[in-house]
Write a protein that binds this DNA or RNA. Structure first.
Lengths: 262, 262
DNA sequence: CTCGGTAACTCGTCTATACGAGTAGGTGTC
DNA sequence: GACACCTACTCGTATAGACGAGTTACCGAG
């Protein structure tokens, strides 16, 4: 076995006042940026880096930890540290809720995923009545209780999104919306059948680091933020009829919107 | 001085197989979530935690590092580790480029910031001609050269956003758009005066961890992602007339959009 | 009173060592 | 050939110690 995957990495500058672990991280980052290590490639092991740079293991781990926080690398216990693969990205277009996309037999997620050549799944379905949080209540016009529909979306076995829809009970109770499977076209199609013609949606987008619970349910690598999207659906009278709270793995999404110049 | 800010923190569970540093992080996280430590509060020092839990300093640092990666805490050299303050959030509404917002004497950023009671600044202005990257070229219809306008936006002295506008040279050369200050209403007002009536904008949104360069220019705390927004402006003939590439501190923004149900 | 220095505290960096736990590949037995 | 085992490699967790550098408050000299 060659002593190290060296040649790809240079030496430290002892005169620099830049911390040693940062210098090591810089070199690895540059090697990744320049393509000397590619997506999914294994980086030199901690032991190899220790020998190559002549530093202690904690220093090397510190450098690798930096790269992981930047989202450039992921470590796998027992295997090594790898250049983080960029997963295929799902593009959410601003017309994704257009009525013409609703009259299918399948859900929008399924149709779109299959068109993109991926294998879609929906799991951890939960449908129950509950008291809304303050935020959700405010968006829905302060109903006392709401119907909550929770589900997780996966592409090719990888969880990409976790969503909860909230609907006022007076709208959703004893309708197909309260069923685990609401039928073709999803709950928006059912809402319209029930006489709540949808007029427009408001969406609010934030990005932040995931909570430990979100790391688990979305199986997120370190250094991957989440996109938190809250969508409110309004009917023709301006009444909010649904709020959908969605947490998405940020590395799996691009959101696209079209704005009129008015 | 009291021996420790204890009472707020419990003991470790030696029977648990959960790593000690995770247990410590769990306790601190819970104390923050429950409001026992509030925004800006100083957490117990490393030394205090070492004594309270009876572990080594590296273990405590490991726990604190976890909280920083989650965006819950920030450390300040020589001072301590603090619960990360949530800065005031700037809300970008989907009508922010409406024509009626343009006929002011000031830029949209300035007007809006002052209305919100903040002190706006714009700096590191750079205006130059350059060859576009592949991505920008593709969005602009492959011009050979473009005018690039770079600037950084600050609120109350804090950098929140870094943006670059790209315009095809045949549109922008020798116009007020090529000046450092393009005048009231910004470059969109100038584009319309030049006969490029704006029709609509496309926006693409991603979230990711910042590069080291972005950490510097936006003075980002660890555990704060960036929102990367690329906006393309189209004229009435469907020609792209500008691409604006923006990197925003994610903790300073909420993006709001309105979608028609069509 | 002002200014400078010191002391005590904070986190940052780095070394050296040890053991645990997951993975992969080879080896040897049945 | 199938399978259990062993071994060598990987990263994960934890200890103990050392020195450096930024911050703050106090105290003493001028």
């Amino acid at each position: 076995m060659p002593p190290i995957a060296s040649g790809l990495l240079g030496a430290l500058d002892p005169t620099s006042d830049r911390a040693v672990f940062r210098q090591i991280a810089d070199q690895l980052r540059e090697a990744i940026d320049k393509g000397r290590f590619r997506e999914g490639d294994k980086l030199p092991s901690e032991t190899e880096l220790v020998e190559h740079f002549g530093v202690s293991r904690m220093t090397v781990r510190n450098a690798l930890s930096l790269l992981q926080q930047e989202g450039l690398a992921v470590s796998e216990h027992g295997k090594g540290v790898f250049v983080r693969p960029r997963p295929p990205v799902r593009r959410l277009a601003s017309d994704r809720f257009a009525r013409r996309h609703r009259d299918q037999g399948k859900s929008a997620f399924t149709v779109e995923a299959e068109a993109a050549g991926s294998r879609p799944e929906v799991d951890s379905l939960e449908v129950k009545e509950e008291r809304p949080s303050q935020d959700i209540a405010a968006r829905l016009g302060s109903p006392r209780k709401v119907l909550a529909r929770r589900r997780r979306y996966l592409l090719d076995g990888r969880p990409v999104e976790f969503a909860t829809s909230y609907l006022p009970l007076d709208i959703a109770r004893d309708t197909p919306i309260a069923e685990p499977n609401p039928g073709p076209g999803g709950i928006y199609a059912r809402l319209e059948e029930l006489g709540h013609r949808l007029d427009h949606f408001d969406e609010e987008i934030k990005a932040r680091m995931p909570t430990p619970a979100e790391v688990r349910t979305l199986r997120l690598a370190s250094g991957v933020p989440v996109i938190h999207l809250v969508r409110t659906a309004f009917d023709g009278e301006g009444r909010p009829v649904e709020v959908c709270d969605t947490v998405m793995a940020a590395d799996a999404y691009v959101l696209a919107y079209q704005l009129p110049a008015t």
